[in-house]
Design a protein around this nucleic acid. Structure first.
Length: 426
RNA sequence: GGCGUGGUGGCCGAGUGGUUUAAGGCAGCGGUCUUGAAAACCGCCAAGGGGGAAACUCCUUCGUGAGUUCGAAUCUCACCCACGCCGCCA
């Protein structure tokens, strides 16, 4: 949630910042918020004066009652002002609710330093590793997966529908090995605390991280219980400290979680979605950091490096993209995407997104910290990065390391976790 | 799912209609004392919001919402959550 005080104080600046996003609904939403805020504050002022008057009169009633003096004429006039307060309160509550709902639909302010424009304006920040060369035509991962007998897309579709892959045998062990490899790396070398959170969350949690109310159609929901399958571990993990006040000494908090992610990907179909490229369920190791505001920019760089370390250990060539304002997600102020090269499909695949959300999520989820003992609480900054998403990483792993006979080399860092240095066709 | 008990400030906890503008404790902060620390003692210490240049001032908040009342932490109703027992169950 953006800071309504900032909007009040500098409406032109906030508007200019938000217009950098490719979202033509923002301007009207801002006008609505400003109008509602004006009306709301007028009503507050009016009702508070009335209330102060009523409170004083009520005290006088109490005094007379104790002194056994009559108070009948006071009571009669109090009845009238009490009714008026009640009516005003109802109106204020309604205005407040409308204001809040409107604010929840306004995206975060993009960081001043990021490029302005649509996805085409994304900037390549750096590249790592060499794109592998082949003296044969490399095959796509869905073919390799079938030949190796480790990926069963057809039976996944039978069980659940398209986009629900089944990993079998060495494939399942590869998934398990990747999870342990990434969790070990982040807990032992990067200092993260491992969390195993729920895979279903309530509305408040999704509002906290920004998926609701605007993107309810993108979520898998269980209407009977009003719960949702998590689209990412970011949701339960960021919400761990919702409605809490942390000590400054507790910051930064760094969590890592391995969970499945569930995404409806409504409307998606076609060549960009084949095999493991875009699926409804995939596993991911997620990194979440809660930091002091003054530390968040440095933490963002650190976090991005932690995600990169995974790809480096896996010997996967990748590039780091700084997203332009129009391509940056609703809650994020600044995002680096990690894209891994996949030789079979011959393209870069997004396998991690490292974002700083500044105080946007903290404001929604009410996550605060006390800068010093006895000081006023302030909002923390939240950040997260995939470290990393499995499906596309597995696609790259298979495609980049394939041999002409269809076998696939397992990178050294993963060998102890998978138990073999090569996957062989059946 | 049934029955029962409960939900109060950062934490614990008292409080059944009007000096509760929420007792007391813990934690925190400042001080006295001390070579230093601890202990002891004294003082300060909730959050959010409106108005104001400021000093300051006013309002709201005792799980959430609705109701009764001049007035609700306190009474009524609904809902949510936690815990206990029963039922079901990997």
């Amino acid at each position: 949630m953006i800071d309504v005080k900032l909007l009040r104080q500098d409406p032109a600046g906030v508007r200019a910042s938000l217009l950098r996003r490719d979202d033509d609904t923002v301007s009207a939403a801002l006008d609505e918020v400003l109008a509602l805020d004006r009306r709301w504050r007028d009503r507050i002022t009016e009702t508070e004066q009335l209330r102060a008057h009523r409170n004083a009169a009520t005290e006088e009633v109490a005094r007379r009652k104790r002194a056994k003096e009559p108070a009948d004429e006071l009571l009669a006039s109090l009845k009238l002002s009490s009714d008026r307060v009640k009516a005003l309160d109802a109106e204020i509550r309604e205005l407040e609710d409308m204001l809040h709902q409107e604010l929840l639909r306004i995206p975060n302010l993009p960081h001043p330093a990021i490029p302005t424009g649509p996805a085409a304006a994304n900037r390549v920040v750096r590249e790592w590793g060499a794109i592998p060369a082949f003296d044969f035509t490399p095959r796509p991962h869905w073919e390799l997966g079938e030949t190796l007998g480790i990926l069963d897309l057809v039976r996944g579709a039978k069980l659940s529908g398209s986009g629900f892959p089944v990993f079998v045998g060495a494939g399942a062990r590869l998934v398990r090995g990747l999870a342990n490899f990434m969790l070990d790396l982040h807990t032992r070398e990067h200092g993260y605390l491992e969390v195993a959170p729920p895979f279903m969350v309530n509305r408040a949690s999704l509002i906290g991280t920004g998926q609701l109310p605007k993107f309810e159609d993108d979520q898998y929901g269980m209407p009977r219980d009003d719960l949702f399958l998590i689209p990412t571990a970011e949701v339960p993990v960021t919400n761990l400290h919702r409605d809490e006040i942390l000590d400054a000494a507790q910051l930064p908090r760094a969590f890592v979680a391995f969970t499945p992610c569930f995404r409806r990907e409504a409307g998606a179909a076609g060549k960009d979605t084949r095999g493991l490229l875009r699926v409804h369920q995939f596993d991911k190791v997620e990194l979440v950091r809660l930091t002091r505001p003054d530390a968040s920019e440095a933490e963002h760089q650190l976090l991005t490096g932690h995600a990169e370390a995974v790809l480096q250990r896996l010997e996967l060539p990748y590039r780091v993209l700084e997203l332009a304002s129009g391509d940056t997600g609703f809650s994020a102020a600044r995002t680096y995407d990690l894209e891994v090269w996949a030789a079979g499909v011959g393209t870069w695949l997004e396998c991690s997104s490292a974002s700083t959300f500044t105080d946007f999520q903290a404001r929604r989820a009410n996550i605060r910290y006390r800068p010093a003992p006895g000081a006023k609480p302030e909002f923390v900054h939240t950040l997260n990065a995939s470290g990393v998403a499995f499906a596309r990483t597995i696609a790259a792993l298979l495609e980049n390391n394939q041999a002409p006979d269809g076998s696939v080399r397992i990178p050294g860092a993963l060998v102890p976790y998978v138990g073999t240095d090569r996957l062989l066709p059946d």
